[in-house]
Computed example of a mutant assay.
Amino acid sequence: MPEDRETPKPGTPTGGATADASYTERLVTLEQSGIKRLLPTQAPYRWNLRRLELGRVLDVGCGVGRNLQNCGPDSVGVDHNETSVDTARARGLTAYTAAEFEADPELSRPGAFDSMLVAHVLEHLPLETCKELMAGYLPSIRSGGKVVLITPQAAGYRSDPTHVRFVDFAALRSLAEEAGLRVERTYSFPLPEAAGKVFKYNEYVLVGLVP
Results as ranks from 00 to 15, higher is better:
residue 59 D to E: 07
residue 204 Y to D: 07
residue 110 P to H: 04
residue 189 F to R: 08
residue 94 T to F: 07
residue 61 G to E: 03
residue 84 S to M: 11
residue 115 S to M: 01
residue 117 L to M: 08
residue 176 A to W: 07
residue 204 Y to K: 01
residue 95 A to Y: 07
residue 63 G to F: 00
residue 159 S to Y: 02
residue 79 D to F: 05
residue 151 T to M: 02
residue 48 N to G: 01
residue 26 R to S: 12
residue 187 Y to I: 14
residue 156 G to S: 02
residue 153 Q to L: 12
residue 118 V to L: 10
residue 81 N to Y: 00
residue 67 N to W: 14
residue 12 T to A: 03
residue 113 F to K: 08
residue 82 E to V: 14
residue 33 S to T: 14
residue 43 A to R: 15
residue 61 G to K: 05
residue 146 K to G: 02
residue 27 L to M: 10
residue 165 R to A: 11
residue 210 V to G: 01
residue 199 F to A: 15
residue 67 N to F: 06
residue 101 F to R: 05
residue 91 R to F: 07
residue 200 K to T: 13
residue 119 A to K: 13
residue 173 R to F: 13
residue 64 V to P: 08
residue 182 R to G: 15
residue 1 M to G: 14
residue 98 A to P: 00
residue 37 R to N: 08
residue 129 T to P: 11
residue 191 L to C: 10
residue 16 G to M: 07
residue 140 S to Y: 04
residue 161 P to L: 14
residue 114 D to K: 10
residue 174 S to G: 14
residue 80 H to E: 00
residue 144 G to S: 00
residue 166 F to L: 01
residue 126 P to G: 06
residue 67 N to Q: 01
residue 201 Y to M: 15
residue 141 I to T: 12
residue 179 A to I: 09
residue 197 K to H: 09
residue 50 R to A: 09
residue 155 A to F: 06
residue 123 E to K: 04
residue 128 E to F: 05
residue 138 L to H: 13
residue 119 A to W: 03
residue 101 F to E: 00
residue 206 L to A: 04
residue 157 Y to R: 14
residue 122 L to N: 00
residue 83 T to S: 09
residue 173 R to K: 07
residue 69 Q to E: 11
residue 38 L to K: 08
residue 131 K to L: 08
residue 49 L to W: 05
residue 90 A to M: 12
residue 93 L to A: 11
residue 53 E to P: 05
residue 30 L to Q: 05
residue 188 S to H: 05
residue 110 P to Q: 00
residue 209 L to D: 05
residue 65 G to H: 07
residue 5 R to T: 14
residue 166 F to W: 10
residue 182 R to S: 15
residue 114 D to M: 00
residue 116 M to S: 00
residue 205 V to A: 02
residue 148 V to G: 01
residue 14 T to Y: 02
residue 81 N to R: 06
residue 72 G to I: 10
residue 182 R to E: 07
residue 50 R to Q: 14
residue 154 A to L: 05
residue 57 V to L: 06
residue 162 T to I: 06
residue 145 G to P: 02
residue 77 G to V: 01
residue 85 V to D: 13
residue 52 L to M: 15
residue 175 L to F: 04
residue 21 A to Q: 06
residue 37 R to F: 13
residue 54 L to H: 03
residue 116 M to Q: 00
residue 101 F to T: 00
residue 10 P to L: 04
residue 31 E to M: 13
residue 33 S to Q: 05
residue 130 C to Q: 08
residue 60 V to I: 12
residue 189 F to W: 07
residue 50 R to G: 06
residue 178 E to T: 02
residue 95 A to G: 03
residue 92 G to Y: 14
residue 40 P to E: 01
residue 192 P to N: 09
residue 26 R to L: 08
residue 137 Y to D: 03
residue 173 R to M: 01
residue 98 A to D: 02
residue 153 Q to T: 03
residue 164 V to H: 01
residue 11 G to N: 10
